[in-house]
Design a protein around this nucleic acid. Structure first.
Lengths: 233, 233
DNA sequence: TAGATTGTTAATCGATTAACAATC
DNA sequence: TAGATTGTTAATCGATTAACAATC
């Protein structure tokens, strides 16, 4: 049994499902749906109703027996849980192709994530703007972040520049790094309060490749086994 | 006990670790390391040695007692498991900011993933090239994919265009969709052999936001509980 | 040979699902 | 009130870790 004051660590599996709940409730809200049961959500999201109730009860008791959940209330609660009720200041480090694409992505701002500065080393870019956001020299990054209370740094620099940038970031008030580089980021002990969220595109592509290839692979494995156990199916 | 001919389904948790093994072995290879034990790998990757041996034994017996694993051999085996030993033809659908960034990303080609065509509806783009890859009209997509035996479609179209594009793709020989749109892709029964790999950027950002916010959240939850159980820590 | 390290079985841990009393 | 649906405990399932005989 759980003790009253105990802080139960929420598992990553649950955390990864929160954005799905949030988006689903947002859609229901748009469609003027007022109440929703865990069973309704189950049908939409493909999770079991039981899992949905378990997930939500990590954070409080948002439902009502015999009624279900009020869509607006649950939506608001989850937005608070995800930290979407406050504005987030972001900087983007590395104004290459991917960096520029992200700087032009308006969806982030819609949800309260505002890119207020871009940093690069290329003198041809410094002083220019992308999507109305100014590009500064990385030299000025440390000062700027601390001065403007920036939350999140988006990392879109080349792999071999990553370590150096992270070193600078670890001297700032940055709380999270959204890492689009292929590098694995390690922060030393005194900075392990910086959260790193990786978007490892190559890993994602490799995973897709594996799954496309899986049937052929299983056949090959089976054939190999038949050599050892000739009478198997 | 497992039957000889049985096909054991490999769990997604294992699959997601395969690219990490692959990259790690690639690095060792570059550094001329010839052999490696599960314990060595454990230190580098942060998985337990036991887990590493379990993972690898999903696909065969690649090691040798008392010796460990031959780096080159294991690297080669995992590359085959991931399907990286064959070339993959890809098309990119949607030449917006993100699409253009991905078209310029050379890392994919390095690993045998070749973008051979880009499709868009914008007449100003059709006929032009990005990173030497021609942009065609989406009208020609179905024919092109089937004619050229394309494996993978990269989806970087606006959300509301996704369904229509997927409908067309489901009539082709496409094996996998690498989905960068916020849409959840559902393929009907006759096309459920198309594998979908999602890169949901907003979900990733929300997850980061949650984790940055977690400490504050736990405090708030604790405070709420104290109202009910006033004597808890 | 002795030491090292695998492949694999058994034990443990954690996450998901089922069940149901509480209650709106 | 009766039906519906929650929050929560218990059961199950699956993934990770530990242990160790086999063997290079």
């Amino acid at each position: 049994m759980e003790q009253p004051g105990e802080i139960k660590k929420v598992s990553m599996a649950v955390i990864k499902r929160l954005p799905k709940y949030y988006k689903c409730l947002g859609n229901l809200l748009k469609n003027n749906v007022e109440r929703v049961s865990s069973q309704d959500l189950s049908k939409i999201l493909g999770f079991t109703a039981s899992q949905i109730r378990q997930d939500l009860n990590n954070f409080g008791e948002f439902g009502q027996q015999g009624y279900g959940y009020n869509v607006l209330q649950l939506y608001t609660e989850i937005s608070k849980i995800l930290g979407l009720n406050t504005l987030h200041k972001m900087v983007l480090v590395g104004a290459g192709n991917l960096g520029q694409a992200l700087a032009n992505y308006s969806e982030f701002r819609t949800h309260g994530f505002d890119i207020i500065a871009i940093f690069d080393t290329n003198p041809n870019l410094i002083g220019r703007k992308i999507n109305n956001t100014p590009i500064y020299s990385v030299e000025d990054m440390e000062y700027f972040i601390n001065e403007n209370d920036v939350d999140i740094a988006i990392l879109t620099v080349p792999k071999d520049k990553t370590e150096k940038v992270v070193e600078v970031l670890s001297k700032t008030c940055i709380r999270g790094i959204w890492n689009f580089t292929p590098a694995e980021i390690t922060t030393d002990d005194d900075t392990d309060d910086i959260i790193v969220e990786n978007v490892h595109l190559i890993d994602s592509l490799f995973t897709l490749s594996y799954r496309i290839n899986e049937d052929k692979l299983q056949e090959r494995l089976l054939k190999q086994k038949r050599k050892i156990f000739p009478d198997c199916r």
